[in-house]
Design a protein around this nucleic acid. Structure first.
Ligand code: SF4
Ligand code: SF4
Lengths: 158, 158
DNA sequence: TATATATACTACATATATGTGGCAAATACT
DNA sequence: AGTATTTGCCACATATATGTAGTATATATA
């Protein structure tokens, strides 16, 4: 017999943790979605217009972001008629960490889960021992995976 | 022989991922720091003043947050002289997820890492297969650990 | 050179999170 | 009752992220 009250509590937790914390800023999301989408067919030249239509990202915001990604050296931008964007760095040389680092001010994120600036195993907060494993899993994905390591066969959306 | 350029790149990644993404909002941080600090000695009555001094959190912001935590049923608030806050729910009944859920609008977080609203294994994004494991580790900590499950012996800071 | 089609840039507009000031209300003590 | 101490509330101030408008610049083609 299922206790309805706790079922809903549990369901709410699942919904909550499906997203909470694990969600990047819009800007990082956009950057990753754009670059992973481009990485599916890395040789192509992509116009802002085509990316906007495909990825449903706000026009001017995407364009600004593309300029950032260009200045950061991930892509070329070709101005004028028949212009667009294509990879400068190879997708297998672009780590997920690099992308996020490029579009967000790294200095914004000085601390860990509980916001302390100077953290170490020698000066731990109360969550440290429970948190370390998650943090390392997380780090290994974002520092270890490149744009070309992702599962393009599986993906049904960008 | 160490390649200096890559050493610095690596160091930057470590710094980056020490914080990035894994950092909660200030509000959630505060809530967790306050409640974990109180959970170290759960029977005590804590004044806002003492919490502000100990945890270095902005006066009015902390007070507002305490009212929220009170309304959400985690703590009692006792007004007037000799007033303060103490636990209403037992710390071992308060999951980390509950705290974050209470102080942040859950509706803000509708999606997962790439921001999609309707996600499932049947409709995955390009990161899904690499991301699922991290997400589950993460979920198990926040839905599985209560305030009293944390390592109070180890902790040197709140 | 004129035109169509691109990206680049700057400034402003809006939304949200975070922080602050001032005063009201509650309670214990004298 | 009066005072000191404490929480509660509301409105505004500030910082940051996000989104929008308008214009300038670059390039291929006719
Ligand atoms: S979990 Fe560890 S690294 Fe993160 S804030 Fe706490 S002490 Fe610092
Ligand atoms: S990783 Fe999976 S659950 Fe997360 S956004 Fe991608 S498809 Fe959705």
């Amino acid at each position: 017999m299922i206790n309805i009250k706790y079922f809903f509590k549990f369901a709410a937790d699942i919904l909550l943790f499906h997203g909470i914390f694990m969600k990047l800023t819009n800007t990082s999301e956009y950057a990753l979605r754009i670059l992973t989408y481009m990485a599916k067919d890395p040789g192509q030249l992509y116009t802002a217009k085509s990316l906007i239509e495909k990825l449903k990202i706000s026009d001017k915001y995407l364009r600004r972001l593309m300029t950032t990604l260009s200045k950061e050296g991930f892509i070329y931008s070709i101005q004028g008629r028949d212009g667009g964007y294509s990879f400068k760095k190879q997708p297998n040389e672009i780590f997920l960490a690099d992308v996020v680092n490029a579009v967000e001010g790294m200095d914004t994120y000085a601390g860990c889960v509980l916001g302390f600036e100077e953290c170490s195993c020698e000066n731990p907060c109360v969550m440290h021992s429970t948190w370390v494993k998650v943090r390392e899993e997380f780090m290994s994905v974002f520092t270890g995976k490149t744009l070309s390591d992702l599962d393009f066969e599986l993906a049904k959306r960008y």
